[in-house]
Design a protein around this nucleic acid. Structure first.
Lengths: 169, 169
DNA sequence: TTTATAACCTACTAATCCGATAGGTTAATG
DNA sequence: CATTAACCTATCGGATTAGTAGGTTATAAA
């Protein structure tokens, strides 16, 4: 409570009623991480957890993680084409890790599946794009704030590898 | 360079060609911060910068910040209803700050305009929603990662007030 | 050599959301 | 009483997401 208070976790005020109104009105709450990325990370973790280098079938992951098989197929295909996975066709085939889990940072997985990590293209390192409304990035009040957010997110995602997130608890 | 290397800013590999392919194929790069929120923050900063408590017209902000006036109207209205702004109708009317800029945290602004700060509803403090696919949040490899991201983002946004982001440089 | 398997490929679609636009009504000022 | 600026309601095109459908190719086992 004391720790969270200073980062604004619980600053209850009039805004809170607005938030509650939003929750009840809108059925679907906006998610910033697409299911594609979420499933992709889960699948990678699943494969990493198995440990051995035997190919894992899409159907197995799909069942175990409750993911539509067809959708998962397209995701794993993309992960193979991006150099995260290798594949083998036919019976006993499937997908397997190419690199060590310790060498796969979450930054690169998310960048490939999701795109930019930054909340706004004008502070993105890999997907930079100028805002069409801002004449000057230095004068923009949002810009420096978003740079701070980007850097703190990048720190977390860069520090976490596939080995970290697939470690059994 | 040294600092950024350990957080995965520049791990060039095969993924990089994927990223470049994405950049060229897709015209519009996904943004996690909606224009609504972005404009809302800019407008608040604009009002805060003026310093005095005289009402600021929507048209003035709209012109100065290159924002569609009608769109901005709806945003400022929402900010008034959420308790950030007061308003005055008629000639000489407009919007003015109700609280001190130092007392307006970015967390609350973003929560009202954008919704959840967390990347995924299942780690959201104010907009929590269980994943329909995950049987157990503890066993989910994405969950703890997203909690870390949420906390670091919350720290940045909670530390920054309207006074901070509207400070002249 | 055939058959089963599982990756791989192409195309389509329903639902949803964002960023506006249009056109009006109400309230305050001079 | 006219002007101003907030306030309200409705609608819409374009884009994206999360799939589904229906096939083809390559590999291993029978």
């Amino acid at each position: 409570m004391v720790i969270s208070a200073d980062v604004g976790l619980f600053d209850f005020s009039i805004e809170n009623s607005i938030i509650n109104a939003k929750k009840s009105i809108f059925k679907y709450i906006r998610s910033m991480l697409s299911k594609k990325t979420k499933y992709g990370i889960k699948a990678l973790a699943f494969i990493a957890k198995k440990g051995d280098r035997k190919p894992v079938q899409t159907s197995e992951i799909s069942k175990s993680e409750n993911i539509s098989q067809k959708f998962l197929e397209s995701i794993l295909l993309e992960l193979r084409k991006s150099g995260f996975l290798g594949s083998k066709k036919g019976k006993g085939g499937g997908y397997y890790l190419i690199k060590e889990p310790e060498d796969i940072r979450m930054t690169s997985v998310i960048r490939v599946l999701e795109g930019p990590i930054a909340m706004v293209p004008c502070v993105s390192l890999n997907y930079y794009e100028k805002c069409d409304d801002c004449p000057s990035e230095e004068a923009c009040s949002v810009h420096s704030l978003m740079i701070q957010v980007r850097d703190s997110t990048l720190k977390v995602l860069g520090d976490n590898t596939l080995a970290d997130i697939s470690a059994k608890k």
